[in-house]
């Protein structure tokens, strides 16, 4: 197994086709890396959303409990 290119300039030039080769490699690199980061962050952002969701849920439960409690006492007063 031998290196195909003799110099770094040859490697960049790709026998005159450098533009096409490096454009397609750049698209793949950006696409794959971008999606990897996006899908990796998805769990974190979903967790943040869920924290808000649970807070709302417990708030609602507490208000409901309070509401029921006041209703109970008003019934007793009557």
């Amino acid at each position: 197994m031998t290196l195909y290119f003799q110099t770094f300039q040859d490697f960049i030039d790709m026998g005159g086709h450098g533009f096409f080769v490096w454009t397609s490699y750049a698209f793949c690199f950006v696409g794959l890396l971008g999606y990897f980061i996006y899908s990796n962050n998805l769990s974190q952002s979903n967790k943040k959303e869920l924290v808000k969701f649970y807070r709302k849920l417990t708030d609602r439960e507490q208000r409901l409990a309070k509401h029921n409690h006041t209703n109970d006492s008003s019934e007793v007063n009557e």
């Binding site: 197994m1 195909y4 026998g15 005159g16 086709h17 450098g18 096409f20």
Partner: peptide
């Protein structure tokens, strides 16, 4: 990109 040979017709574009 570094070790493979090129196509005799397509040259280095074959690396795509």
């Amino acid at each position: 990109l570094l070790f493979s040979q090129v196509d005799y017709q397509q040259g280095n574009t074959v690396r795509i």
